[in-house]
Design a protein around this nucleic acid. Sequence first.
DNA 1: CAGTATTTGTCCGTATGTATC
DNA 2: GGATACATACGGACAAATACT
Lengths: 247, 247
Amino acid sequence: MEFEPVTQVRAYERVVEQIEQAVLSGRLSPGQRLPSERDLMAQFQVSRSTVREALRVLQAGAVIRSRPGDPRGPEVLSASPAALHKSLHRLAMADHLGLGELLQFRMLLEGSAYLLAAGLRTEAQLAEMEAALAEMAGKTDYAAFSRADYAFHQAVARATGNALLVVCGEVVREVALGLIEDKLVHAEDRRALMRSSLEHHREVLRAVRERDGARACRLGRRALYDYYAEYVPAAERAKLVPLLDQL
Amino acid sequence: MEFEPVTQVRAYERVVEQIEQAVLSGRLSPGQRLPSERDLMAQFQVSRSTVREALRVLQAGAVIRSRPGDPRGPEVLSASPAALHKSLHRLAMADHLGLGELLQFRMLLEGSAYLLAAGLRTEAQLAEMEAALAEMAGKTDYAAFSRADYAFHQAVARATGNALLVVCGEVVREVALGLIEDKLVHAEDRRALMRSSLEHHREVLRAVRERDGARACRLGRRALYDYYAEYVPAAERAKLVPLLDQL
DNA sequence: CAGTATTTGTCCGTATGTATC
DNA sequence: GGATACATACGGACAAATACT
């Protein structure tokens, strides 16, 4: 007979667990309302403080939202990458996650996104990418250019039809940009950077249009490397090379 | 002049923010202790409940840990991917994404993991993979086999040196297994499945040993496809094909 | 449009089990 | 083993905010 080590589980955690399970299993869908705090303390047989601590945790995890004075009770939110973004951001800030690691992961994700998008894209999705690219070409302001670039990569990710890829790409791009934006501001030749970036995007998009996934993947990764590698510590740069050569 | 919309910021949120900033900026390093709840309510000039709600949120985010009766106060934790794991897991569970999408993402991640691992692995990491494979070969019980399989893939992910890849792979494997475990239980020929899976793993590992990343990537994705594709609805199966052919 | 009831946000006090010295 | 300080959990209370009649 095997016994499990007994773990002290606090009251508020069990409240969190039950509500979380109800949301995850779909018994509570986004938009629906939870009972009021007083009703919850009756149902769970705990004090209001305990209920409140549980609700705070759920709110911090972007599972629910509660506002004062709302008689309908806390609202169940739809799944969002907010919590994912926060935890990844914290991990990156704590230097437990170097820029090299982040860039490696981004090259991996975006390369695969190109590969899939080239094979699966519809004409409408291709048009979205081309629209974003045209938007990039028209901007001279770096901030606007960056936003259009963001839209381009989002369009590629959406074309894969994979929600996980969209969300993870989104988060990784944002956090990576946050890490180097101060360095980019000081770059004197942003114009040249933007021009070369635009050219790279054009080439990749051509490969996607011709349904050449392998080439799109290779070009996309190479472009990311050329763009960001100089900000990556030399020691970490070796981690990126296998993503360039062999594919 | 532009004005920002005024947002009602609650007391406990400001407590969270201050402590979080202190940890992120390094003024509070892992292992250090926070003041006790009573001291905190004096410093922040708020009530006990407010302090407690803030600590609950920080604890849920894996920033601190507090135990009853510890006179040293709440402990500052080192940054860990635990929170990332939780939020990604919730996202993967909630979006009721299909098995096809999940498998697509897993093929993408694990293929890239093989590609990187083949190029970056050390001898010690190779030995870990071989140990996990030997463990798989020795098991006839499906549960034990599955655990060893899990360890194998974890070893591959670790060899890439990328914590994000490790965590994402972990989550995707767990969720995917949860979705099909009931179907696998009813498979009559689990023995044959295990045997063929073992053979596939051997081939992939050989490619990793020979530092042939492209082949390892291709073999790994093919193995995943052969293993799980039959449980994927036919309509979704097309989403997986681009990951097989072109690489 | 105003009034009312309800809910949340915050505070205070107290009892209990627990870890450390 | 005892003393101390701590977190956990409970209950009651009031003000601000919101929704509904």
